[in-house]
Design a protein around this nucleic acid. Structure first.
Lengths: 197, 197
DNA sequence: TTCATTTCTTATCCTACATCAATGCATCTG
DNA sequence: CAGATGCATTGATGTAGGATAAGAAATGAA
């Protein structure tokens, strides 16, 4: 599973094998069971998690005990709480495993070392930040204006490959609606003969 | 008004006067009237706008012709569409002036030049990106879970100094509610003897 | 000033979505 | 395999906030 991270990483940053090897000493990989919590609200986020196999999610829990899913991360995605990590402050987020998953733990030492030896890593990281902003802004925009149905349709086109793996109540949580409403939306779409797959 | 940008910029990046001077050739400042549109949806965003005096906003217009305000920027703030600018793609956003305002137009040449000569600029820019992400994520979270009233209360504490300058219907648009609802929320708060100022 | 335009409020009715509750299925687990 | 647990669906009912309309108040222009 470290291999798949290496492949991923080199595809993004053009580091040589030697360069990559020279900074991997703090990288750890681990298999975790479905349900394992990797980051708790209140903790300071010390790692980014690269998913080599499986599925993770990040979410908040509000004063009423309700979960709000912020993000999903399947194979070849990295998930973390960048704010907490960068500003060294307690995280708002939980991160846990939706499926049994194989993870590479990326710590700050690795990030810093990579940034030091590679321009392309820095560029890549910058691009990732911009992508993240773009994605969040689009989501804000949808939450401001779109109906439950529109948001769901947007979700299944963007995350087509994940829609079957993620339980519906989590999709509902991501969309900001209840599972019951999502069920009704889907029923309505089916009635209108909509075929997602 | 270039001066106020210089002050702002040096407070964030520790460039010397000479360094700053050496890259200012493409900077332009301009006064624009209330209502002036600085960026149109569909355009590629070529500048960031530094506000030395006045107030700008960015917003989208959806299929039904409804505005959704994404951001406000008053004195000593920079506003732009980073995604459009960075990825060189058509912007989703409009940016226009809520008040008569004095603006410094910052183009990519300036940014690139600054990044080239100053580590602290790069760091500062990176911090700004992380702040942006943190702010957007918080907003997503509020939109997913909080009531109109909670969102309004959050707004007036965070943007206390702006609440009196921004028309209520724009605040409503930022919060994702109608002006009528905001009016009712305010009435309710007043009844419960809530004192914002 | 005065007239016009924009913004804010209020009132009535309406709808999208939430809440609550019950049932049917899967799937785990001992 | 029987029971427990979790998830999706469905139905009945409630509600926050939207739509519409109209008047009041503020702002602005002439």
């Amino acid at each position: 599973m470290l291999d798949s991270f290496k492949t991923y990483f080199q595809s993004k940053t053009n580091l040589t094998d030697e360069q990559f090897l020279s900074i991997t000493d703090t990288l750890q990989s681990k298999k975790v069971e479905k349900g394992t919590v990797l980051l708790h609200q209140g903790d300071i986020c010390q790692h980014s998690f690269f998913v080599s196999k499986g599925l993770l999610r990040s979410y908040t829990i509000d004063e009423n005990g309700k979960e709000h899913i912020i993000q999903f991360a399947a194979e070849n995605w990295i998930i973390s709480d960048r704010s907490s990590s960068y500003f060294n402050e307690p995280s708002e987020l939980f991160i846990d495993a939706i499926e049994d998953t194989e993870i590479v733990f990326i710590d700050k030492k690795f990030i810093n070392a990579a940034a030091e030896i590679s321009i392309s890593f820095r560029e890549q990281d910058n691009t990732a930040l911009h992508n993240h902003i773009r994605q969040l802004q689009k989501r804000v925009n949808l939450l401001l204006g779109a109906t439950a149905e529109q948001r769901y349709l947007d979700f299944i086109t963007i995350y087509a490959s994940l829609t079957l793996r993620i339980p519906q109540w989590m999709i509902a949580s991501y969309l900001g609606i209840t599972p019951e409403t999502l069920s009704r939306v889907r029923k309505e779409l089916a009635k209108r003969n909509f075929k997602p797959y």
